[in-house]
Simulated assay, not measured.
Amino acid sequence: MNFKSQVRSLLLFISCFSSSILLAQNDSIWHQKPELNISGFLDVFYVYDFNQPQKTERQTFLFNHNRHNEFNLNLGFVKLDVKHSKYRANLALQTGTYANDNYSAEPGILKNIFEANVGLSLNKKKNLWIDAGIFASHIGFESAISSDNWTMTRSLLAENSPYFLSGAKLTYNPNDKWEITGLIVNGWQRIQRLQGNSIPSFGTQIKFSPTEKVILNWSTFIGTDDPDIIRRMRYFNNFYGQFQLTKKFGLIAGLDIGIQQSMKGSSDCDLWYSPIIIGQYAINKYWKTAIRAEYYQDETGIIIPTTTPNGFKTTGLSVNLDYSPTRNIICRLEGRWLNSKDKIFETKTTPTNNNFIIGTSIAIKFSETLKK
Rank of each mutant, 00 (worst) to 15 (best):
I329N: 00
V319C: 06
L22A: 14
P351N: 10
L216K: 09
E106H: 03
S121E: 06
H138Y: 09
I358Q: 10
P34I: 05
Q261S: 04
D81P: 00
T97F: 07
G316T: 02
Y163Q: 00
T326N: 00
S219F: 04
N160A: 03
D43R: 04
F366W: 15
K55N: 13
N197Y: 00
E159C: 01
F366A: 13
W337D: 02
T97H: 06
S324E: 07
L75E: 03
Y235I: 11
G182H: 07
I14V: 15
N237P: 09
Q280A: 08
E115L: 14
D270M: 12
A116W: 08
S318T: 05
T315C: 13
F141D: 06
E57M: 08
K177C: 05
N26L: 11
N353D: 13
F41G: 04
N127C: 06
K371G: 04
F208Y: 15
I215M: 09
I362H: 03
F243Y: 11
T95S: 11
V47T: 15
E294H: 03
N186P: 09
N175K: 10
Y46T: 03
N74F: 04
L183N: 06
E106W: 04
F114Q: 11
G359L: 09
S9R: 10
I230G: 00
I191E: 00
F164E: 01
L170V: 07
S143N: 08
F41S: 08
S318N: 04
T350C: 08
H31A: 14
K177S: 10
F239T: 06
D268M: 02
R231W: 05
F71S: 13
M152S: 09
T204P: 00
H65Q: 15
G167I: 00
T151V: 11
S340G: 12
G203Q: 02
F236H: 13
I362T: 10
I259N: 01
I329F: 03
H138I: 13
D270H: 12
W188N: 03
V7G: 05
F50M: 07
F141S: 08
E346A: 14
Q244V: 09
F45C: 11
S198V: 01
I257S: 04
S367P: 07
T306G: 01
F77R: 03
